[in-house]
Design a protein around this nucleic acid. Structure first.
Length: 423
RNA sequence: GGAGAGGUGUCUGAGUGGUCGAAAGAGCACGCCUGGAAAGUGUGUAUACGCCAAAAGUGUAUCGAGGGUUCGAAUCCCUCCCUCUCCGCCA
């Protein structure tokens, strides 16, 4: 959520930023500014009348104590009028505030200056490409066929017990999942992140804090009986750990990592591109999250990007890094890097990570602040990234490492899998 | 699921109608003391939104949330939420 005070003082920059993000309702900015003006006026009126009423109440108290009952009664005469006035003004104020907040939550975060203009994914900027795309023989198989051939993943069984998009991992397929999770967590810990294990369901306030609610309600599974949402990413519970928190200056940066399954309804996305592991309703992911000083957040974003890349390098996967264009970025992000691995059998890039700086967009909703050098509270910057999401990593590993005799496990993973070949 | 207790500041905890943004203690910060530290001691120590060019100052709101009674509510009444304890069930 953008800060009203920032919008008020930087209207032009806000409009320019929204244009880069291809935001369709720039008129909201003006409406927000006007509502804010109205809000402050009304607040002022309430404050003034309340001050009078408070003073009178105090006076009555003093008069009563000193036994001047008639004088007290005289002062009381006015209070009814004020009371009514306060009530009405408060109702107005509440209506204005509701209007204001319903509009301000519709405004997406503003893009960083380096974000390219653009609307479609094709307009994302390729920052770098790394690793060699393997040349597979003509009879190479896509991962869903490999998974069946080596009995690693059973999609039909998943359909039976739950539905499409909920695969069952078996044997070495299951072990590979476990190995990747441990590998990613260990690497994150080496990079200074402390591990947390989290609830997989969150309440409404948490969903709001990280920006899933109210706008993306339909993307989360909802447990109506208890009013809880299944997490679409560990970002939600990890970042909400710091909701309503004021950190001491020396507590920054906060670095957390966590493994969780993720649940996404992915309503309306079916077709060839979602075959196999390409898009699931439930998948596993290790997430890294940082809460940092605003001056540091862009350095930290680069560090996080480097960390994710190091994982891909250790796994020997060819990848590229994209700087997302304004139109393809998420609602809450100021700058996002996507990491994609080359899926050799499908001959396409698969997104395996997304690393974002949210600046104060989340912290403003979360009321996540720190005490700055002047001793004042200030909104912190939040960042997160997948490090990494498993299914597409598995897809790429299977496809890229397939040989005549089986699938080779990357050296870095062998200590975790304790086998070096799937055959 | 049944019965009971309770939600106050960073924490413990007092406060049952006015002088309460809230005692006291702990913690924390800064200073004094000390060769240094501990102890001792002094001072300070919520947040948000306004007013003010800004600091100082000042207004308003906030004692789980919302509503009500009252000139005045942390305190009384109603509704909701949450936590804890015991019992039951259970990994």
């Amino acid at each position: 959520m953008l800060q009203v005070s920032y919008i008020r003082d930087n209207r032009e920059q806000v409009l320019q930023g929204l244009a880069v993000k291809n935001f369709k309702q720039p008129e909201l900015v003006e409406e927000v500014v006007e509502l804010d003006e109205k809000r402050r006026q009304t607040q002022n009126q309430v404050d003034n009348v309340s001050a009078q009423a408070n003073a009178a109440a105090k006076q009555i108290g003093e008069l009563m104590r000193s036994g001047k009952k008639e004088e007290a009664e005289a002062v009381k005469a006015n209070t009814g009028k004020w009371k009514e006035e306060i009530k009405q003004l408060n109702e107005q104020l509440a209506a204005i505030e509701e209007d204001l907040s319903s509009k301000i939550v519709l405004l997406p975060n503003l893009p960083h200056a380096s974000v390219p203009k653009g609307i479609t994914p094709e307009e994302n900027e390729v920052v770098l490409e790394n690793g060699n795309k393997p040349e597979l023989p003509a009879n190479a198989l896509p991962h869903w066929e490999l998974a069946a051939k080596y009995n690693l993943i059973d999609f039909e069984l998943g359909v039976k017990i739950t539905g499409a998009g909920f695969p069952v991992y078996k044997g070495k397929g299951a072990k590979l999942q476990r190995a990747l999770i441990s590998f990613f967590l260990d690497e994150a810990e080496k990079a200074g992140y402390s591990e947390v294990m989290l609830p997989l369901m969150v309440n409404e306030a948490s969903g709001f804090g990280t920006g899933q609610l109210p706008d993306k309600e339909g993307q989360m599974y909802f447990v109506g009986q208890d009013n809880l949402y299944l997490i679409p990413t560990a970002e939600v519970p990890i970042t909400n750990l710091y909701r309503d928190v004021i950190l001491k200056g020396d507590e920054l940066p906060v670095k957390n990592c966590g493994y969780t399954p993720c649940f996404r309804r992915e309503a309306g996305s079916y077709g060839a591109h979602v075959r196999g592991l390409n898009r699931l309703h439930q998948f596993d992911k290790v997430e890294i999250v940082q809460v940092v000083h605003p001056d540091e957040s862009y350095n930290v974003l680069e560090q996080m990007s480097t960390h994710v890349q190091s994982l891909l390098q250790k796994l020997g996967l060819p990848y590229r890094v994209l700087r997302l264009c304004g139109g393809d970025m998420s609602f809450a992000s100021a700058l996002t890097y996507d990491m994609e691995t080359w899926s050799a059998a499908q001959q396409r890039w698969l997104e395996v990570s997304s690393v974002s700086n949210f600046e104060t967009f989340q912290s403003n909703r979360l009321k996540l602040r720190f005490r700055n050098a002047e001793g004042k509270t200030q909104l912190a910057h939040t960042l997160n990234g997948s490090a990494l999401a498993l299914p597409r990593i598995v897809a790429t590993l299977l496809e890229n490492n397939q040989t005549e005799t089986g699938i080779k496990i990357p050296e870095a993973l062998v200590p975790y899998t304790r086998f070096d070949m799937i055959d």
